[in-house]
Amino acid sequence: MAKAVSGRSRTGKHLEEIDLLPIMNLFCCIIPFLLMSASFLEVVVIEMAQTEGISTSGAGATANLMRSEEDRLQPKIIITDEELFIGTVSGSAHVCYALETELNGEMIITFPWDSLTVAITEVHDILTEAYPQIEFHKITILTVEETRYDNIIQAIDIAIAAGFDQPGLQVAPTASVTSAMRGGGN
């Protein structure tokens, strides 16, 4: 058995113990305080750009679509019941098809968001490369009336992650969105 280096330990001496009770008392005070102050769900916000309304007939929506087409460089994420597109200056491109999944006994529509992540990052890179003098921040989420809110938030979240941090929302009847798509080319 190795001899103690310090020389303090001698045969027959008792071992000193650290009194842990004050530490326990301190912990018992701190832990309830921290439990009360802890926030396990953090609420954050997405700042939206100014939205534009639509009228009952959808005529307003068409006008809005036309106006948004005037802003040629601003890309759009177009969400319909069946597909998801990205609209750019050179037209709209198909990204993915909708998926139907069951949530709490209800069938809901969702999308494979990884496809959008890849596509929107690619669009941002292409735009930045082609127009280096412009900083691209704005993007429009153009969607049909029935699209679920969580799908919109997902699309916005992906757009923000790709660099488009000023999202706007446009909602239009399905017919208007479809006609805009047809006019958009490939």
């Binding site: 100014q50 939205t51 534009e52 969607t143 009336e145 919109i152 929302l169 909602v171």
Partner: peptide
């Protein structure tokens, strides 16, 4: 709520504006 349709959100946002 996650389940609200886009038209409802759009109408609320238009009302705010």
């Amino acid at each position: 709520d996650v389940g609200i349709p886009a038209i409802l959100l759009q109408r609320v946002m238009a009302s705010c504006s």
